Simulated assay, not measured.
Amino acid sequence: MLRLLTILSLVAAILWGGWWLLGAYSLDRGIAAGLDQARDQGWRVTVGDTSVSGFPNRFDTQFTEVDVTTPDGLWGVAMPFLQVFALSYRPNDIIVVPATTATVTTPGAPLAISADDLRASASLSLSSQPDVERLTVVGTGLSVASADGDLALDRGQLALRTAAEPFSYDLAVSLAGMALEQASFPAGLPDRIDDAAVDVTATWDRPPAEGGRLVSLKIRHSYVRWDDIRVDAGGDIRIGPSGFPEGDLVVDLVGWQGLLPVLAQAGLPAGQVALLAGGLTGLEDNGVARVPLTLRGGQMLFGTIPLAALPRLPAPYNP
């Protein structure tokens, strides 16, 4: 009996080792095919080296000198290495550990990002068109530097999952301990924000991996809080043909009086600040002012009072 068990154990070990070797070979071929497919779709992708290890229970894949740019050239990321870990018997559930330094290209200015710790977990679909079904990214000790200023973050988390509508994702982001330094924000804003969060459904005009552009945002809830001020917002936004956000928001303000000097220092005329103060006083109930805002023509408006200029995004494709 002991001899039989030994033989069976050896056979099982050989089969399991063979499964890992086959999986590693398939993974290596799949990575190469995936990179070629991405390049055929217009993505600019360069990778210095790719290696697979972790025998016999894991597939540990490391990429070095990673540089990826979207087909429209507006977004990109470059980092020294990227590690992807998966159990050999659950290869579609992965843990991703990027380098703690990276350069991110945006439609505005490039960002230099560093972190004490940064990692992600994801679940991938096993269909003929692979997609991310779930993604969670957690970072601590984050620093973002740009020409407009620096941002430091004690902790941040991003969670994403596929939504019911095509090309749509539910996205939740929470941030804690944000410090702003030498940033081109209106004078009077605090140099540290206690916490902020947003919960939205974002819809693209085609799969983001194929160069899709943002079409709309359904903001279920978002807020930012510092000192005695809290701003909560929700509403529906679409990206117009010009690329400017359009739509309506409802904003609840607590401690809104502290925002008036910020608007004045940002250049809002004194008469409009006074008019705004009167309007908010009339809207206040139990310490909360509920404010309807309109996004139109590249401006955020309270009635007819322009409060802020809006960023211009890539316009959705119009077939």
Score class of each variant (00 low, 15 high):
Val144Arg: 03
Ala172Lys: 06
Leu142His: 03
Gln182Trp: 09
Glu181Asp: 13
Thr162Leu: 11
Gly139Arg: 00
Gly141Arg: 02
Ala163Gly: 08
Leu153Gln: 08
Asp194Thr: 15
Gln157Phe: 00
Asp148Gln: 13
Ser125Tyr: 14
Ser128Arg: 15
Leu135Met: 10
Leu175Pro: 00
Ser127Ile: 09
Leu151Thr: 05
Ala120Tyr: 04
Ala164Ser: 13
Arg192Ser: 08
Ala172Phe: 03
Tyr169Leu: 07
Thr136Ala: 03
Asp170Lys: 13
Arg119Ser: 10
Ala152Asn: 14
Asp195Pro: 04
Asp116Glu: 15
Leu158Cys: 04
Leu175Asp: 00
Gln129Trp: 12
Glu165His: 08
Thr162Tyr: 03
Ala196His: 03
Ala145Ile: 10
Gln129Ile: 09
Glu181Phe: 10
Ser184Pro: 07
Arg119Thr: 03
Ala187Phe: 11
Gly188Ser: 06
Asp170Gln: 12
Gly139Val: 02
Phe185Gln: 12
Ser121Trp: 15
Gln182His: 15
Phe185Tyr: 13
Leu142Ile: 09
Ala147Ser: 15
Pro190Trp: 06
Arg192Thr: 07
Ala176Trp: 03
Arg134Ile: 08
Asp148His: 11
Ser128Gly: 09
Leu158Ala: 05
Val137Lys: 00
Val138Ser: 12
Asp116Val: 08
Ser146Gln: 02
Asp170Glu: 14
Asp199Pro: 02
Asp154Ser: 11
Ala147Val: 12
Ser184Gly: 11
Ser143Tyr: 08
Gly141Asp: 02
Ala196Val: 02
Gln129Pro: 08
Val132His: 07
Gly177Ser: 04
Arg161Tyr: 09
Pro190Ile: 06
Asp150Glu: 10
Ala115Asn: 03
Asp154Pro: 00
Ala163Glu: 10
Val144Ile: 14
Leu160Asn: 04
Ser184Tyr: 09
Ser174Arg: 05
Arg119Trp: 06
Val198Met: 04
Arg155Gln: 13
Arg155Lys: 13
Ala120Arg: 03
Leu151Lys: 01
Asp150Phe: 02
Pro130Leu: 07
Asp148Thr: 13
Ser123Trp: 15
Val137Asn: 01
Leu175His: 00
Asp116Leu: 08
Ala145Asn: 13
Ser127Gly: 14
Ser123Gly: 14
Ala179Asp: 08
Ser128Val: 11
Ala159Ile: 05
Leu124Trp: 10
Leu180Ser: 09
Asp195Tyr: 07
Leu189Cys: 05
Leu158Lys: 00
Asp194Gln: 14
Val138Cys: 06
Ala122Pro: 02
Asp199Gly: 01
Thr140Ser: 15
Leu151Asp: 01
Gly149Trp: 02
Ala187Arg: 11
Ser128Pro: 04
Ser127His: 11
Glu133Lys: 15
Asp148Arg: 10
Ser143Leu: 07
Glu133Gln: 14
Ala145Cys: 06
Val173Ile: 14
Glu133Pro: 07
Gln157Pro: 01
Ser143Glu: 13
Arg119Met: 04
Ala172Cys: 05
Arg155Val: 10
Asp131Asn: 10
